[in-house]
Amino acid sequence: MGRSADYTIQGFLYQFNQTLAELLKAADDAEITIEGIVEDIEVATFSGTKAIQCKYHETKDKYTPSILYDPLLQMMKHFKSNPMAKISYHLYAHFPNAPAVVISATDLNSALNSKNKDLQALIAEACGVNVNGFLKVFSITITPKYDDLMEENTKLLENLGFNKSEVETLFYPNAIQIIADLSIKHDEKLRKITKKDFLDVLRRIRHTAISQWTLALKTRQKVVESRRKQLRENLSANVRLRFLVIFPEFLERFDDEIVLFIKSFIDKYHYKQAHTHTPLFALDVSQDSFDEIAERLIGKDVIPNLGRPVKAFSEVSFFREPMVSKDKKEFSLRLIRWDDYKNLQLKNKADDFFVIGAGDIATLDLKDINLETLGAENFDEIKYMLGVSNAY
């Protein structure tokens, strides 16, 4: 990941952390909208609405008002369109060398008169705004750097009764994940949550979320280690039916690693005679790629059941049990394309359903199934969390 990508993700995480701080400090019944009316955070209480934006500029050596023209214009545009609404506008910003920032009428007029081509549409919509009226309902806070904000949130969680030993590796990363999940919902009503509901959801979670967001946290190593420990109990059981669906889009070196990953998993969890439940792997790949992977597995002496005795897929053949000789099974795994798996009429549900990578499983019936989502980006971390390897 390049430095620009690092800073982009850090900017989102800063926003999520600021949202989390707002949630944890709010009254129990205050309603929070993630990515609200002016894009970032919106807090509704009996006294009105607090519209919030977050701007994180760790790489800016020097503060200049023009850096904030975009969020200021967005807020002025909204204020102009809602003159009678009880809305206060608040901007949270971080600059490494700016301990305090004051926004004046001069700064706002300079934003409205900016020649920046990228701002012209916003300027046109905000033109004619009552600048002095806007200033009465606007405030700006220069916030701590990202690390300090993260530390503050972990302490707030502890103060709310969350187990101190689990905050870093369970509750804090899951709090960030809940906010990230809410932020991408299209319907604004689905992006609303109260502090009470948020904390209720968080307290019920016992598995650490693994995603691009939680793995981008400063506590990445602890998060991965915690997830490995959580998965260990079920993975240590000999008799357990495991399905793994793998989405390659964001997985690094998928083509190079997929065969080695499947072989490593089989060598670890399906080699004993006591391992009586054949694991199923569903791959979100094209037919040509699927056939190539199957051929490469056979070349590694890992024999897949493709459910194709000749050409046509046979569900009966796919779900039959392998013939077993004294020391070898007829096949080691069931292998299927994700598009075909979704059409199966399953008679037996998995005990554990692993989702590896980033993909949509919303249409699946996962009732009474232990769902384990590992949204990591490389197989080394995935193998470590699954106990297939001891280092990454």
Rank of each mutant, 00 (worst) to 15 (best):
V137P: 03
E151W: 10
E151C: 09
L297S: 02
F171W: 06
D380Q: 11
W213P: 01
G359M: 02
R203M: 11
A237Q: 14
L241Y: 06
G48T: 12
K117S: 13
L283K: 01
I298A: 08
I298D: 06
H275T: 02
I37M: 13
D181F: 06
S389I: 11
E330P: 03
D6V: 08
N163F: 14
Y7A: 10
F79M: 08
F261V: 01
A294T: 00
L364V: 05
K272Q: 01
S110H: 08
G357V: 04
F354H: 01
K77M: 15
K326S: 14
L108P: 03
L217G: 05
S264W: 00
D148V: 09
D339V: 14
D360R: 08
A376S: 07
A124Y: 15
L335Y: 00
E22R: 14
F261R: 00
A358C: 08
N163R: 15
L333M: 06
F243R: 00
K195L: 05
E188V: 15
Y384D: 07
P96I: 11
S211M: 07
I266F: 02
D288F: 05
G357T: 01
L386D: 02
I41N: 13
E158M: 07
S236Y: 03
F313A: 03
D352E: 07
P309R: 05
K185V: 09
F354Q: 01
N116S: 15
R308L: 01
R240V: 08
S289C: 07
S110Y: 02
C127E: 14
V245F: 01
K62H: 14
A26H: 12
H186E: 11
K192L: 05
E58A: 15
E377L: 12
L346V: 04
G357S: 03
H277F: 05
L366S: 01
H78L: 10
A93C: 14
Y89D: 07
S183W: 02
Q74K: 15
L251T: 00
K347H: 06
T169A: 15
L235V: 03
E225G: 11
E330A: 01
P248L: 05
Y89N: 08
V324R: 13
F331H: 02
T219P: 07
I210W: 04
N17G: 11
F331K: 01
I140N: 00
G36K: 10
R204V: 12
Y172I: 07
N234Q: 11
Y89Q: 10
E377G: 09
P65G: 10
K62A: 15
L199P: 02
A216Y: 01
D288K: 14
